[in-house]
Simulated scan of single mutants.
Amino acid sequence: MSLNWDVVEKWREESGISKAELARAAGIPESTIYAGLRKNSRLQPSMRSVMRTIFPRKFDDRGEVRS
């Protein structure tokens, strides 16, 4: 399953962290999050692995997104 910014946004809201905190944890500018949401773009493999470290419970053992 591909991982879009909309899914990450839902996870962020469930976790109660701000977009600024997520950007700091991911090591990206906050504007990247806003642009990704605006375009509903997919995450690149490197950003997907970063999100796996931030939201480990959302991924299974093989690195696939849990439903």
Rank of each mutant, 00 (worst) to 15 (best):
M1Y: 06
M1T: 11
S2G: 07
L3P: 04
L3M: 01
N4L: 14
W5M: 03
D6I: 11
D6Y: 13
V7R: 13
V7S: 07
V7H: 08
V8M: 06
E9I: 06
K10Y: 10
K10R: 15
K10L: 12
W11H: 03
R12P: 02
E13A: 13
E14H: 04
S15W: 08
S15F: 07
G16D: 00
I17W: 03
I17G: 02
S18I: 02
S18A: 01
S18V: 06
K19D: 09
A20G: 11
E21D: 12
E21Y: 00
L22H: 03
A23V: 01
A23E: 02
A23Y: 00
R24I: 01
A25Q: 13
A26K: 00
G27S: 08
P29R: 10
P29Q: 08
E30T: 10
S31R: 06
S31A: 13
I33A: 04
I33M: 02
I33W: 00
Y34N: 14
A35G: 12
A35K: 12
G36A: 09
L37C: 09
L37E: 07
K39W: 10
N40M: 02
S41N: 10
S41L: 11
R42E: 15
L43V: 05
L43D: 06
L43P: 04
Q44M: 14
P45C: 06
P45N: 07
P45F: 00
P45S: 09
S46N: 15
S46I: 14
S46F: 13
M47F: 11
M47Y: 06
M47A: 11
M47C: 04
S49F: 13
S49V: 14
V50C: 02
V50S: 03
M51C: 10
M51L: 11
T53A: 12
I54S: 09
I54Q: 04
I54E: 07
I54R: 04
R57P: 05
K58Q: 13
F59Q: 02
D60N: 10
D61E: 11
G63S: 03
E64S: 09
V65T: 05
V65A: 05
R66F: 05
R66E: 08
R66D: 04
R66C: 09
R66N: 11
